[in-house]
Design a protein around this nucleic acid. Structure first.
Lengths: 199, 199
DNA sequence: AGCCGAAAGCTAATCGCAGTAGCTTTATGG
DNA sequence: CCATAAAGCTACTGCGATTAGCTTTCGGCT
């Protein structure tokens, strides 16, 4: 028998292919093994469990998304950076409509690859920070802004891909509306016209 | 043997108890059956499958949340209504930290209870519409605003409960920040100070 | 009071998939 | 050429969902 020459990375790649093609419910070790050309138990030479594999997939997805979004945002600032971040995030999710499910379920820092997951997540968060830095926010407001940014984009994309938005109204327009909303809100905090609202 | 006297509603209630207690991964028919005091296969007299049960649970959760949020928002308008909607939604999710997972996965209108799911979802959306109505938005903007509202709240709550926010910064403050952001944004659309941004 | 059919439960069995045990073979480095 | 570790494999266990078919209870009707 010719050896398949698998590695943890290759298995992860096959697993992502399966996810993309068959959705979260279709992500089974048997399917991954089949795509990799080996018997199912052989995968255990490279991953500790299915959950472990999911974590590895999430790490990959976060890293990929961060790279892509980071590259797009690079050199931009303010509204332009913000719009680009949002657009690229949604574009990535649109290209792989099932991957967003990986960023909701995986157990936090459980297991061997927990730290890697946190690191990958932190990397994306770093990019979000950089994106928002230009608005002149300080202290906790900076964190609040990053959280708002993530909530907005994750929420919209999640609803978009789990059939949460049923009305016929154009989704691109809704996303643009939300983008404007966020941009305007951050600008308002950047140049507070007074001490209008809650501390 | 004394009869358990189950109904679809009671089974759904037990299933939600299991979900609340054991999380999404612990939601198994065996666990539900045990809590209901019957053997696992007996559940099939009331639900078609585990997936079907998940849909029923989602319907219940959406209905409950809509009632609760609807009651809280009733009689309010503008920012007050908006803040209440957001606060109540998050409070519900905070009370049952696992239920938000039901609102992400369930297959759309698949199966017998698909229409019920859509109806329950539509009910909550109606309340979101009512909440946002006071801002004087028209046409598609109204839909955009509702979608923004849902994206914001679902995104924040989802990240909050899946350990997406790791920084030590206070989550309540971040939620307040996001609430203000949304309120300010909707007010801006309500009273456009000109034709400032993108159509 | 007693009968009947439907519905609710049960036990036994099937099926698919995650995970484990232990053997075999391929690469290699010495 | 040989020892050994890693990569695969087959066989097996266990669990949970689901199906099949039997048994019992219940409500209505006579």
């Amino acid at each position: 028998m010719a050896r398949a020459g698998l590695t943890q990375q290759i298995v992860t790649t096959h697993a992502l292919d399966v996810l993309d093609a068959a959705g979260p419910a279709g992500l089974t070790l048997k399917a991954v093994a089949q795509r990799a050309g080996v018997a199912a138990p052989s995968l255990y030479k490279h991953v500790r469990s299915l959950e472990d594999l999911r974590v590895l997939m999430a790490v990959r997805v976060l890293t990929e998304a961060a790279e892509r979004i980071g590259a797009a945002v690079m050199g931009l600032a303010g509204d332009e950076a913000l719009r680009t971040f949002l657009r690229e995030f949604r574009a990535y999710a649109g290209q792989y409509p099932h991957r967003h499910t990986l960023l909701e379920s995986p157990p936090p820092a459980a297991g061997e690859h927990g730290p890697a997951l946190e690191a990958a997540s932190a990397h994306l968060v770093e990019i979000a920070f950089a994106t928002v830095r230009g608005y002149g926010l300080t202290g906790d407001d900076l964190v609040h802004a990053v959280r708002a940014l993530r909530a907005v984009v994750v929420g919209f994309v999640g609803l978009e891909h789990s059939a949460g938005y049923l009305l016929p109204t154009d989704l691109d327009a809704s996303f643009a509306f939300l983008t404007d909303l966020l941009a305007a809100g951050l600008n308002r905090h950047a140049h507070p016209p007074g001490t209008q609202d809650r501390a």
